[in-house]
C-alpha cells in the first residue's frame, strides 16, 4: 500500500469539513438564516456567535453552513455537466484520431477556450435570469472542453498500448474498447481534473454571486455575503473575513486533494514535484 501524501490527507480533511457542514445544515444550524435580529447586528465573534453576526443580525456561522450547500451544489453539478459532455467527446475524438471528428472536437475545444469565460457566464446569467441554475449552466459549459481534452489526451496514450491492440485483434469495436478498456484506465485522470474543476467552480460561483448573478436572496451564498459586507469591511472586519476564509479554505482543500491524488495515482510525477 502506497503511503498517502500529506497534502492529500490535509486536502481531504479540509474539503470534508465543508461538505459535512453543508450536509449538517439541512437538519441543523446554530441559528435560523432567514430571521432578522437587528438588535444583535454586526456583533463581533463571541461564545453565542462564534463567527459573529452580519448587518441583519444573522449568525455568520449558520449563513456559511447554508452557503456551503449552494457553492458545493453549483460546482459539483457543473463538474457533472463538464464530464458528461466532455468525456464522451474526448473518447470519441481519441478513437478517431486524426479523423474529421477528432478535428472538429479539438477545434471546438480551442474555440470555447477562446471565449472569455467570465463574460459569457455573465451573459448567460444576465439573459436567462440570475439564479444558481444558470450559474451551473454557465460554469458547466466551460468545464466541457477541459474534460474533453483530458479524456482525449489520456485515451490517446492508451490506444498505442499492446493490450488495446489485443482487444482490437479479438474483434472488439472502437466504442466497446473505449468503454471497457480506455475509460476505466483514465478514470484517475478524470477524478483529479474533476477535483480541480470543482475548486474552480467554487471560485466562479463566488464571483458570479458577488456581482449578483448567482443564487438569489434569501438563499445565502458566500459570494453575496462578501458583496454585502463590502461597505462594512473596516467597520466590522469579521463580516468580510469569514466568508472569504471559507472560500479560500474550501478551494485550498480541493486543490491539495487534487494535487495529492495526482501524485498518488501517477508515480511518474512524484520525481518531478
Amino acid at each position: 500500500m502506497r503511503r498517502l501524501p500529506v497534502q492529500m490527507t490535509l486536502g481531504a480533511a479540509l474539503s470534508a469539513v465543508f461538505v459535512l457542514a453543508a450536509l449538517v445544515s439541512f437538519v441543523w444550524t446554530p441559528y435560523g438564516v432567514e430571521g432578522l435580529a437587528i438588535a444583535r447586528r454586526m456583533a463581533p465573534p463571541s461564545l453565542a456567535h462564534p463567527l459573529g453576526t452580519d448587518h441583519f443580525g444573522r449568525d455568520i456561522l449558520s449563513m456559511l453552513m447554508v452557503g456551503a450547500r449552494t457553492s458545493i451544489a453549483v460546482a459539483i453539478v457543473a463538474v457533472g455537466i463538464g464530464m458528461g459532455l466532455g468525456v464522451p467527446l474526448g473518447l470519441l475524438a481519441a478513437a478517431n484520431r486524426g479523423g474529421l471528428i477528432d478535428e472538429i472536437v479539438m477545434r471546438g475545444n480551442d474555440l470555447i477556450f477562446a471565449f472569455p469565460s467570465l463574460v459569457i457566464a455573465i451573459l448567460i446569467t444576465a439573459i436567462a435570469g440570475p439564479s444558481a441554475f444558470n450559474a451551473i449552466l454557465a460554469i458547466g459549459i466551460f468545464n466541457t472542453p477541459v474534460f474533453a481534452r483530458v479524456a482525449r489526451g489520456g485515451a490517446l496514450s492508451l490506444w498505442t498500448l499492446d493490450y488495446i491492440l489485443a482487444a482490437r485483434v479479438a474483434g472488439k469495436g472502437r466504442l466497446r474498447i473505449s468503454l471497457e478498456h480506455i475509460l476505466p484506465n483514465i478514470l484517475n485522470l478524470l477524478i483529479v481534473q474533476g477535483t480541480i474543476q470543482f475548486s474552480l467552480g467554487i471560485l466562479a460561483e463566488a464571483g458570479l454571486s458577488y456581482v449578483g448573478l448567482g443564487a438569489q436572496p434569501p438563499t445565502p451564498s458566500w459570494g453575496r455575503m462578501l458583496a454585502e459586507s463590502q461597505t462594512m469591511v473596516s467597520l466590522s472586519p469579521h463580516i468580510a473575513i469569514f466568508p472569504g476564509l471559507a472560500i479560500v479554505l474550501m478551494v485550498l482543500g480541493l486543490n491539495l486533494l487534487g494535487d495529492g491524488l495526482r501524485d498518488w495515482t501517477d508515480p511518474r510525477l512524484r520525481r518531478a514535484r
Binding site: 458577488y210 462578501l226 463590502q230 472586519p237 472569504g244 479560500v248
Partner: peptide, 23 residues
C-alpha cells in the same frame, strides 16, 4: 502559491482597500 491560487481576487481586493485605502 497554493494559498495564492485559492484566494478569490475580489476578496483580496476588498482587503487591500480596507488596509491601504481606508486605514
Amino acid at each position: 502559491t497554493q494559498l495564492g491560487i485559492a484566494v478569490p481576487n475580489f476578496w483580496f481586493a476588498m482587503l487591500l482597500v480596507a488596509l491601504f485605502a481606508v486605514t
